[in-house]
Design a protein around this nucleic acid. Structure first.
Length: 376
RNA sequence: GGACGGGUGGGUGAGUGGCUAAAACCAGCAGACUGUAAAUCUGCCGCUCCUUGCGGGCUACGGAGGUUCGAAUCCUCCCCCGUCCA
């Protein structure tokens, strides 16, 4: 069987240790997936991703559809070959762009009409089209097109988006069953419902009834409190089948990740480590470090003395600050390498904690300091 | 020696009587970033006082005088810089 997910161990908190086998490799869960929207984790080479143990990365259907186009990627032998990443890839459907590009799109029951941010041309993404593209890309995990809304949306709005997401999920599944290959790609349904528990429950139950091989929780961490994100996540995961992977989309901050894992989440992705790195915000076991701060001008220490990433093993804060201030590309690369390693390291430590049944102990130790900005 | 042009806050550089502590950009300082339209965005950036307010005082547009209720802006002289002519 090309895909196999198994839960190896469950922590008292509800956290799951698992492994997901795909045709391009195994993913140990809970897993963090670095975001490579355009087929590139910004600033990093595929070699460097491998060197820090990345097992899966994300790419984006909408963005690759605009450029270079799904057809070209298919001609080039598929996304894995095109980007020279022979390991697992998950493609997001473009559902998030429904949310983030609100000013440039129009949503109907049919699908989403986007005005391309590249050239202004009209582009249409339907559930079927999103699947067609992802099938052409050949990603290991494909996501259904969903309607992502602001978490402050009222119940009527959230209900409509959830209903649309559900209808689209059915169409997506039909399309995939007809044109896809379940031995080659795994399709995930996405639960919406805003910050409304009842809607989330309903959407989760109906999504489960469609019997997807995996489920995602979307539309969270888009403005609501962390507590709400946790509550909604717990609400949804409690309704999802235990033997299938759960993916909480778009989270989170380092100190929040264990909270999601404790709600039974197996997979996460977030632009925070990569974007923050480019913006000079580095994550450490002591909290966040803003490398451009003047206080690091002559600091010969590594970003985090407790970190064993390639950046910390070799380069000083002073040098990294210089690179950042001077706008040198290398700064973005080294910073990104550190932050992604840091996230992967958190996940490795979380998996270890789950194995020993002590995730909550790990959480409290971690969270006491991770939310701060360090100043030494 | 003569003719033009010009000297503005750390830098470049707008501004040609009050709306100017003085645009914009850069530099500097600080902050934000959660399925990436993001190597981006935001705030501060003369000194000082306090009841921290679209608050008060002081200093500031090469220098010194002057005109004016009011001058970076107009006039006079001086000092610098650039270009051209002797």
């Amino acid at each position: 069987m090309a895909f196999r997910f198994e839960v190896l161990h469950t922590d008292p908190s509800g956290a799951r240790l698992g492994r997901l086998e795909t045709p391009h490799g195994i993913i140990e869960t809970p897993a963090f997936m670095a975001v490579g929207t355009l087929g590139s984790v910004k600033g990093l080479t595929q070699e460097s991703l491998e060197s820090i143990g990345a097992q899966i990365i994300l790419a984006n259907t909408y963005h690759l559809f605009l450029r270079p186009g799904a057809e070209l990627i298919r001609e080039m032998g598929g996304l894995h070959k095109f980007i020279a990443w022979p390991h697992p890839i998950l493609t997001d459907s473009g559902g998030y762009q429904v949310f983030s590009l609100a000013a440039l799109r129009k949503v109907t029951d049919d699908g989403v009409e986007f005005r391309s941010h590249l050239d202004g041309s009209a582009r249409f993404l339907s559930p079927e089209k999103a699947l067609e593209i992802q099938i052409a890309l050949g990603s290991d995990i494909v996501m259904v097109l969903d309607e992502c809304i602001d978490s402050s949306s009222d119940e009527a709005r959230a209900s409509a988006a959830a209903a649309r997401t559900l209808a689209w999920a059915k169409r997506s599944l039909n399309y995939f069953n007809e044109y896809g290959d379940a031995s080659r790609q795994m399709i995930f349904g996405i639960v919406q419902g805003g910050a409304h528990r009842e809607l989330r429950r309903k959407c989760a139950d109906e999504m489960v009834a469609l019997d997807f091989p995996g489920y995602a929780i979307g539309g969270l961490a888009v403005g609501e409190s962390h507590q709400t994100t946790c509550e909604i996540s717990a609400e949804v995961t409690s309704r999802l089948p235990a033997n299938k992977p759960r993916y909480l989309m778009g989270v989170g901050r380092p100190e929040q990740i264990p909270d999601y894992v404790a709600r039974g989440v197996d997979m996460m992705d977030c632009v925070l480590p990569t974007r923050s790195a480019r913006h000079g915000c580095l994550f450490t076991w002591q909290g966040r470090l803003l490398i451009k701060n003047a206080r690091y001008a002559n600091d010969s220490r590594p970003i985090d003395p407790a970190c064993e990433c390639p950046t910390c093993r070799r380069y000083s804060r002073a040098y990294l600050r210089h690179l950042y201030i001077s706008n040198e590309i290398l700064g973005a690369t080294l910073n990104t390498l550190h932050n992604v390693y840091f996230y992967l390291d958190i996940m490795a430590k979380i998996r270890k904690a789950i194995r020993f049944g002590n995730l909550l102990g790990f959480c409290s130790a971690l969270q006491a300091r991770l939310h701060t900005t360090i100043s030494d």
